[in-house]
C-alpha cells in the first residue's frame, strides 16, 4: 500500500496544495486502498495488486479542469491570496447542530441572569421578613443562578471557540449544500420573524404592566416588587426567543457568508482587529499614564467614552478606505 500512496504523492507533486486537491487526493487514496484490499482478498500477490491499482489509476490531466486549478492560479498571481477554507458538509452539519445546542444553553444562562433578582423582588417587600430569611430566599438563589449562568457561558463559550475561524476565514462549501442552506434560511424566515414578534410583544407587555402598576399602586412596595418580577420574567423569556431564533440564523449566515459575514466584511474585520489591538493598548497606556501623573482618577475615566466613540470613527474610516480601494 505504501507504494500506491507514494505513487499518488508523486502524481500530486505538480499540483498546488488547495483544499480541493487535498480532498481529491484523499478520495483517490481511499478508492485505491479499497481496490487494493479487494485484490489481496481475491488472492493476488502484493506487487501484482499494486501494479493493477496503478495501471487503472488514470491520469491527473482530466482532474485538473474539474478541480478548478486554473482559476486558483489566477487569483494567486493577482496577489489577493484568497485561499478559501473548504468546509465539508459533515463539518458544517456538525457545526450547526453543535452551535444550536450551545446557544440553547447560553440562552438558559442569560435567562438565569435576567431572572436572578426575581426572588429579591418577590420576598424583599413582604411585611416583616427577617434579614436571615432574606438571605436564604433572595440572595442565595441570586448568587446560585449567576454562578450557574457563568459556568454555562464559560463552558459553551470555550466549546464554540473551535468554530471561531468560520466567522473570520473565507469559506468554501459544496454548491448543492449551499443551496440547501439557503433554502433552510429561507424557510426559517417565518419562524425567525414569529420569534422576534413574540419577544417584542412580551417586552412591551412587561413594560406596560409595570408602568400601569407603577401609576396605580405607586405607594405599595409589594405590588411594585411583584410587578418588577413579572417584568423580568417576561423579558427573560423574550430574550431567550431572540437568542435562539437569532443563533440559528447567525449560524446559517456564517456558513453562507451573508449579512455580517460577507467576504468584504470579513476582510475588514481582520484589518479592524489589527488596528484595534494597537488602538486599545494605546488607550490603556494613555489612561494609566495620565491618571498616575495627575492622580486625578475621578476625571481620567473620560478617556474611555472618548476612545469608544473615536474607535467607531476609525472603523468607519477603515470601511471607507477599503471600499474605495475595491472600486
Amino acid at each position: 500500500m505504501e507504494t500506491i500512496l507514494s505513487y499518488l504523492d508523486n502524481m500530486f507533486l505538480s499540483l498546488p496544495k488547495t483544499p480541493e486537491t487535498e480532498r481529491a487526493k484523499a478520495e483517490l487514496a481511499a478508492m485505491m486502498e479499497d481496490k487494493y484490499n479487494e485484490l489481496l482478498a481475491e488472492g493476488k500477490r502484493e506487487n501484482e495488486a499494486v501494479g493493477i491499482v496503478i495501471s487503472e489509476f488514470g491520469n491527473l490531466e482530466e482532474l485538473k479542469e474539474e478541480l478548478g486549478l486554473e482559476g486558483i492560479h489566477q487569483t494567486e498571481t493577482a496577489g489577493t491570496q484568497s485561499t478559501k477554507r473548504y468546509i465539508r458538509r459533515e463539518e458544517a452539519e456538525e457545526y450547526l447542530s453543535f452551535a444550536g445546542k450551545a446557544y440553547k444553553w447560553i440562552a438558559l444562562g442569560v435567562l438565569l441572569c435576567i431572572w436572578c433578582p426575581i426572588p429579591l423582588f418577590v420576598f424583599g417587600n413582604v411585611e416583616g421578613i427577617s434579614d436571615v430569611s432574606m438571605v436564604f430566599l433572595g440572595l442565595i438563589p441570586l448568587f446560585v443562578m449567576i454562578a450557574v449562568a457563568v459556568g454555562l457561558f464559560i463552558y459553551h463559550g470555550i466549546k464554540l471557540e473551535k468554530y471561531e475561524f468560520m466567522k473570520k476565514e473565507q469559506l468554501k462549501l459544496d454548491e448543492g449544500f449551499l443551496r440547501e442552506l439557503r433554502e433552510q434560511k429561507e424557510s426559517g424566515t417565518g419562524r425567525f420573524a414569529a420569534s422576534i414578534i413574540i419577544g417584542v410583544s412580551l417586552c412591551i407587555f412587561g413594560v406596560v404592566q409595570f408602568l400601569v402598576f407603577g401609576a396605580l399602586e405607586s405607594d405599595d412596595d409589594y405590588v411594585l416588587g411583584m410587578s418588577a418580577a413579572i417584568l423580568l420574567f417576561l423579558v427573560g423569556i423574550a430574550v431567550v426567543c431572540f437568542i435562539i431564533a437569532g443563533a440559528r440564523r447567525e449560524c446559517l449566515n456564517i456558513l453562507l457568508e451573508e449579512g455580517d459575514y460577507s467576504e468584504g466584511k470579513k476582510n475588514n474585520a481582520k484589518l479592524i482587529d489589527r488596528i484595534g489591538s494597537v488602538y486599545w493598548t494605546a488607550a490603556v497606556v494613555i489612561y494609566l499614564a495620565w491618571s498616575f501623573v495627575t492622580m486625578n482618577w475621578g476625571f481620567t475615566w473620560i478617556v474611555w467614552p472618548i476612545a469608544g466613540v473615536l474607535f467607531g470613527l476609525v472603523a468607519a474610516v477603515c470601511n471607507l478606505i477599503k471600499g474605495e480601494n475595491k472600486a
Binding site: 478508492m31 489509476f57 491527473l60 482532474l63 459544496d174
Partner: peptide
C-alpha cells in the same frame, strides 16, 4: 479509471446532480 470516476463526482456534485 479512478481519476475519471473522481472527476465525474466533482463535476456532478458541482452541477448539483449528486451530493456527497
Amino acid at each position: 479509471k479512478e481519476t475519471t470516476l473522481y472527476s465525474a463526482f466533482t463535476r456532478l456534485e458541482k452541477a448539483g446532480y449528486i451530493e456527497g
